[in-house]
Structures are given as C-alpha cells and as structure tokens.
C-alpha cells in the first residue's frame, strides 16, 4: 500500500478542509502517510502532491527537511536517545552506547528483525529528566541501562502495545471539528474585519 487508503483519504480531506490553503496541510498529511505505511513511500508523496496541488519534488523538498519523515523503512519502534547537552552531562552518550550494544546496531541502524531503529537525537524537551529517550515519540525519563533493556524486552514482547503504537502513529486522539461548530478556514484573500471587532468599534463610536 502506498497511496492513501480510502479511509485515510477521507481523513486527509477532512484535514485539508481546515486550512486556508491546501499546501498548509502537507506536514499533517505526510504524517498520515507515514502512519499508514510506517515510512514515506514515493507513491504516497506523489499522492499527496496531487492532493495539495504541488509537484512531487515540492513534497520531497518539504518532507526531507524534517527529521521525523523516514524515506526508507524503519523499525516498528524508533528509539530516539537524547545525546544533547543536558542529557550528555548525565549519561546520554553512555545510554546510546549501551543501546547500541543491547540492540546490536549502530546509531541510525535498524535491527535485523525490523523491530528497532536506534538514533541518537538532539534535545527532546525533557532535559530535567535526563537521560531520556523516546520510543516512537513516547517518553522514557531518567533511563538506566537496565531500564533500557527492560523496555526493549517489553516492546518485543508486546507488553507496551497499549502505550506505544507502531512507528508512524503519532497522536492517537485526533482533532475533529464538528461541522455545526466550525467557524471555517479563513482564506487570506478578500476578508473584512471580524464581526466582533467591527461591532465593538461601532459601539465605541
């Protein structure tokens, strides 16, 4: 599968409708495609290009700027170990080394069984809980080496399935704007002063 499925296409249309210009939906839609396939396929990028009305090269240009988009298959779990300044002061680098040993892959590598991709990453905004990591963007704080091994075991055994979805799935709760409550996307062209401001001004005068 590579183009968006029927369900995802419907979701994509819903997301698109929230934005004043379709290209603004590109990053959310790239996430959707990655959620579907676990990584970003060329077919998906071509499909998104059609959906937002740009060329595939433009989609690639955007997608390749952002680290979360994987243009090759990655493991079911992407483990991001923070090795940035705050974490490295208290063992981030060592945690990454340990993770390399445990998983038997180098930074950037994917285990042979396709379960894990390991990456040393920049600050993930949990600096006071260093050293920390994310497994498919779910945090683990103040991780000891033993805790890391346990996490890997748990993930392999499926014991974390409820908390950590497979790679590509970000928020499991989606925003839905009920049609009757929607104020609507505001296109940049030809708008006038919002009603509440105009009303306040005429009150004042």
């Amino acid at each position: 599968m590579a183009r968006l499925s029927r369900d995802n296409l419907a979701l994509a249309q819903e997301i698109l409708a929230r934005y004043p210009r379709p290209k603004s939906a590109l990053i959310p839609l790239l996430h959707l495609a990655q959620e579907q396939d676990g990584w970003l396929t060329e077919d998906a990028m071509e499909h998104l290009a059609e959906l937002v009305g740009v060329t595939p090269a433009e989609v690639l240009g955007t997608a390749s700027f952002y680290e979360m988009f994987k243009r090759r298959p990655v493991g079911t779990y992407v483990i991001n170990v923070c090795t940035d300044i705050a974490c490295s002061l208290v063992g981030g680098d060592e945690l990454l080394e340990h993770a390399e040993e445990t998983l038997g892959v180098r930074d950037g590598g994917t285990t042979a069984d396709g379960m894990f991709t390991l990456q040393g990453v920049q600050c993930i905004a949990a600096c006071t809980e260093a050293p920390c990591l994310q497994a498919n963007y779910r945090y683990a704080h103040r991780v000891s080496h033993d805790e890391f091994d346990q996490l890997v075991d748990d993930l392999r055994a499926g014991r974390k399935d409820a908390e950590i979805p497979r790679h590509g799935v970000l928020a499991r709760v989606r925003q839905t704007i009920p049609a009757e409550r929607a104020a609507g996307a505001i296109v940049p062209e030809g708008q006038s002063e919002p009603a509440w401001l105009a009303a306040a001004e005429s009150d004042a005068s």
Partner: peptide, 11 residues
Amino acid sequence: SVDVVLHWGAG
C-alpha cells in the same frame, strides 16, 4: 468565532 486548528511539526 474562531477555529483553533491543531497543527504539528515533524522535527
């Protein structure tokens, strides 16, 4: 009236 749209980045 205003819509607040949740948007997210990608690293």
